[in-house]
Design a protein around this nucleic acid. Structure first.
Length: 427
DNA sequence: GCCGTATCCCCAACCACAAATTCGC
DNA sequence: TTGCGAATTTGTGGTTGGGGATACG
């Protein structure tokens, strides 16, 4: 199947938003499975407008379906693809409308006829599916179980989705335009079913057991948009695998690098443990990922402290993964520019398929891409300025005139030893 | 080469409070 | 759905103390 079947959640982009941050953080890319999970949560979320993700840039919401090329395109890609060429400008195209709520597969198919295979019976009852998410004791995966407690995975929603083969083999990852969200649906690109390939366990589209090569894991490790800078890029890139390996091979294994909050399956009931991610250390060379989940990197960008501490933390809610990544050893100041063209950010931002947040997918980063990435990183590092980013000038102004005692702020009216205004010490 | 001490350097923590954000109605 | 007030959280800079790194005898 060539269709990229990711849904772009427009969030409140269509509604008045309090702030720009709100708008940005609401843009997310989700697979069908997570789309249903997220947007069946409450009445408000059901009103979120969603559409397909552009099959070309993988970043913007698709607005046009090119029948000739069987691809969904955003406005920009449509223009680029069809606007400039007389040959292709005559392509038959169809408008793609947004939707909200939790439409059934049949409804989606009616709305988007080109997605014929959706009509194979995806159940439409959101609450039903959501409430019946469960955990397999053996695999620590979540799966959308059928109603009535009658566990029959053959008829479960995820199985249906799997059957649809809706995974885009070329673009297993999608980044939103804001770089805010990713839904790591693993790739099935490896036809030979090698150790890098994705193995589905329970038939849930977002619940795949990923096996990956240890070295590739490190090699392709990429972090998005968190303003990270790496003083020693060998820690990040393959030039020093041995060093990087230390990070993982020490006692904590991968857990020492990835702060993995893993709930015990023992005390799980289906309601509470849905979506717990289970990561196995690289020594076991596989990761079982529960469900894909949208993560807002805006939140990560919002704290430009001196020490970058990336923490992708999924709240322990129903049907959500719960993964935390911590990179406390990675230091360096950042500025806005870093976010954009840091080698580890742009790829995710643009949804390049080879790059993944935790290297969950392996191997396929071409050497050329890798070299260019390293090159960009080096150039970036040379030009980097470690200026502190001030988000609120008004607060800075207030702090600059505030009286202090040994550098600490003191209450107004209390004795102070340093008055920035007077540049004198009172005692 | 090893050990103890001195020095240097880096950085997290601390503080108050206005602004920003969230919450409840 | 919107608006408003209350409650809560966030961010800001100068100084300091602790700890790691380095130098030296």
């Amino acid at each position: 199947m060539e269709e990229c079947f990711w849904f772009f959640w427009l969030g409140r982009m269509n509604a008045p938003a309090k702030t720009q941050e709100h708008r940005r953080s609401d843009a997310a890319s989700l697979c069908l499975f997570c789309d249903r999970n997220v947007h069946s949560a409450n009445a408000l979320s059901r009103r979120h407008s969603r559409t397909l993700v552009c099959g070309r840039c993988n970043a913007q919401p698709a607005v046009i379906r090119c029948i000739e090329e069987s691809v969904s395109l955003c406005q920009n890609c449509d223009w680029n693809g069809h606007g400039g060429s007389a040959m292709v400008s005559g392509h038959k195209r169809q408008t793609i409308n947004c939707y909200s709520g939790c439409p059934s597969a049949a409804e989606l198919s009616r709305m988007w006829p080109f997605l014929q295979n959706l009509s194979s019976g995806v159940e439409s009852d959101c609450e039903q599916g959501l409430g019946l998410m469960t955990i397999d004791e053996n695999s620590v995966s979540n799966c959308w179980e059928p109603s009535g407690g009658n566990i029959n995975r053959d008829t479960s929603f995820p199985q249906k989705v799997k059957d649809l083969e809706i995974i885009d083999k070329q673009n297993p990852w999608i980044g939103s335009s804001s770089g805010s969200a990713l839904c790591p649906l693993p790739s099935t690109a490896d036809p030979a079913g090698s150790s890098h390939s994705v193995i589905e366990k329970l038939g849930c589209p977002g619940i795949k057991e990923i096996e990956f090569n240890k070295g590739d894991f490190y090699a392709d490790f990429n972090v998005d948009d968190v303003g990270l800078t790496f003083e020693n890029y060998e820690e990040l890139f393959s030039a020093s695998h041995s060093q990087a390996s230390h990070l993982f091979d020490d006692d904590g294994g991968i857990d020492s690098f990835f702060d993995i909050r893993e709930a015990s399956a023992a005390n799980s009931d289906c309601q509470d443990l849905v979506g717990q991610a289970h990561l196995i250390s690289p020594g076991e060379e596989k990761i079982t990922q529960a469900t894909c989940h949208a993560v807002s990197t805006d939140a990560l960008m919002s704290n430009p402290g001196k020490k970058a501490d990336l923490s992708l933390s999924f709240p322990p809610r129903k049907a959500h993964s719960n993964i935390s990544l911590s990179f406390s050893s990675l230091t360096g100041d950042s500025n806005g520019g870093d976010y954009q063209d840091c080698v580890v950010s742009s790829m995710l931002l643009m949804g390049e398929p080879q790059c993944f947040v935790a290297g969950l997918e392996s191997s396929s980063l071409p050497i050329v891409t890798r070299d260019s990435a390293v090159m960009r990183y080096k150039e970036k590092k040379k030009a980097r300025k470690f200026d502190k980013k001030i988000r609120y000038a008004s607060r800075k102004a207030m702090a600059e005139v505030r009286r202090r005692v040994k550098g600490r702020f003191v209450k107004a009216g209390e004795a102070y030893d340093y008055d920035p205004l007077a540049q004198t010490r009172s005692c």
